[in-house]
Structure formats: structure tokens, C-alpha cells
Design a protein around this nucleic acid. Sequence first.
DNA 1: GTGGCAGTCTAGACAGAGTCTAAATTGACG
DNA 2: CGTCAATTTAGACTCTGTCTAGACTGCCAC
Lengths: 143, 143
Amino acid sequence: MNIKKIMTPPVRREDVPAALASLGIAVTAQRIEIGAILLESMQHLSAEQVQARLEADGASASKATVYNTLGLFAKKGLVRELVIDGARVFYDSNPSDHFHFYNVDDGTLFDFPSSPVTLTNLPTPPEGTKLDKVDVIVRVTTK
Amino acid sequence: MNIKKIMTPPVRREDVPAALASLGIAVTAQRIEIGAILLESMQHLSAEQVQARLEADGASASKATVYNTLGLFAKKGLVRELVIDGARVFYDSNPSDHFHFYNVDDGTLFDFPSSPVTLTNLPTPPEGTKLDKVDVIVRVTTK
DNA sequence: GTGGCAGTCTAGACAGAGTCTAAATTGACG
DNA sequence: CGTCAATTTAGACTCTGTCTAGACTGCCAC
Ligand SMILES: [Mn+2]
Ligand SMILES: [Mn+2]
Ligand SMILES: [Zn+2]
Ligand SMILES: [Zn+2]
């Protein structure tokens, strides 16, 4: 057996280097800091929020590094990029397939409760293409 | 009977003023031009593409007017705002409820064929909120 | 007809997210 | 240690979209 156990938030800070390495991400001080922030719990953070938390933790990284690191994490599958509203991208540290509620009035973003939502009769992708991922965003307004 | 027939693309240019008026949109020269472009067929256009078509048609409108008009059309339900990739917003003149394929490699955007896709077991919106709309985007890559 | 006026349009300044570049730093390895 | 490829950095830059303040339009009252 050689099935790698994927680490799921919460991941303790001391385990972050292993979580990165297991995905082929070279371990650096900045990547550990950013990874520790994201993997502390399942959450949705923008680049700006990540950088703010770095500061709050007494760490720091340049804007370019924050963006490069989040992009790398997304490419390696550690986090998932969520395009919700055109103003900023969110990075989601919940690794499971799941869908989102977005409150357009106050900007809050929730995971669907883990009910057995299903998409049926999904058409096959157009000729010459293959499925990458399915995003479902349910937009709600404050009543 | 008083059920207003909603005009569906293709809408002839001469019918655009009525299409706007029926939604409570005050008719102006710029709104007719932009409406004529969008309603010519069911399509997905960015603000930049709309402005380029205006120029191509020998018409024009300031950037502020293009954005204001598209925002107004979306608010009134003439078009639907699609947030696909964080780089730009698309405006969709297909008024029916429908889902999208997006090719992340070449940026092309298609409507799902009108197959009976269904989302089942959709959880109810969080307390204090009500459903606005459901966006389903299937991202594909070129094989 | 003319004047008034609200609504609309406009140029261009501004804002904010994200990218790029070129130089400095890091740290693994011989 | 010294080398060197990978990484990080400051800050300029790009791009989408917003805002402001003034100009324009066209409808209506008189
Ligand atoms: Mn934007
Ligand atoms: Mn952007
Ligand atoms: Zn999520
Ligand atoms: Zn569409």
C-alpha cells in the first residue's frame, strides 16, 4: 500500500512542512507561515486576509510572495481557488468536494452543510475538453 | 390577461426600446445601442467587448456609461452578471436559467446544452437569508 | 417656443487586485 | 566555505472597475 494520507485542517503548525512536502511543494519559511494560517482550520481567505494574518502573527511576506504562494498551493491542490465576486479571489482550505453559499449583501461565504447534494444529467464536456472542476455557488441575500 | 412577454434574443434593433421600457429602463441613445448589441443573440460579453462592438458599429459610449448601463441592465434583469475568472465580469443575454462550461485554457464560455440538469437536495439558505440565484460553472481544460 | 430641471452622459482622475521585473537573499550541496 | 538554482523582495506597472464634477438632453410647465 502506498496511498498517501492527505492532511486535512486542522493541521498543527509543526505538521505543515510535511503537508507541503507531501504535495511536492518545496518548504520555505514563508510557505510554512502561509500554510499554517490556511490549514489552521477549513476557511476561505483572500490574499489580503492572508497577508494581514501574517502581520498579526509577527511574520511577513511580500505581496508577490503571498500571491505566488497561494497560486502554487492552488496548483498543487493544497487549497482551492474560489472566484466569487470579481473583486477578489478566495482560497479555500477545505479539500473536500463541496459547494458554497455566498451572501451578496454582507460578503459572507459558507460551505454547504454536507448533505447529499447531487448534480444529475450533467452534460459531457465539449469535444476536445475534459472536466476540471465543478463550482456551485448559491447566492443569497439578507432577508 | 396581463402577462408581459419577455423578449428573448434575437431582438431586432427596432424592438430594443420596447424591451428596455418593459423592464422599467429609461430609453436613451446609449442604452439602445448597448441593448441592441447584447440582445442581437444569446451571448456572453465583457464590458470591454461591449465597448469594442460599439466602436465597430460607429456608435460609442464612455467607459462610465458602459459600466453603468451593464450594471443597470443586470439589476433590471435584462442580462445576468457572470463571475467566471476574477479577471473580468461577463454579461449574459440568455435570460433562461442555465449553467456554464468554461474552458480555463482558452477562456471560451458556453451555455450547457438544454438538457435536464438538476440540482437535488440543495440545502435551504442559512437563517435570515433567502435564495438569490444559483451559479453552476463547470471548468474544463483542453485535452 | 422658452426655461427649468432631473436624469443621463462624459472625461479623466482614482482605487484596488493582481502581475512583473530586476536585484537581493537563501540554503542545499559539493 | 563557495557556488548556484530557487526563492523572495520592493516597487513599478497593468487592468478592471468606480467616482467626481461638470456638460448635455429631452421632457414638461408655462
Ligand atoms: Mn474587478
Ligand atoms: Mn483581478
Ligand atoms: Zn469551501
Ligand atoms: Zn449563458
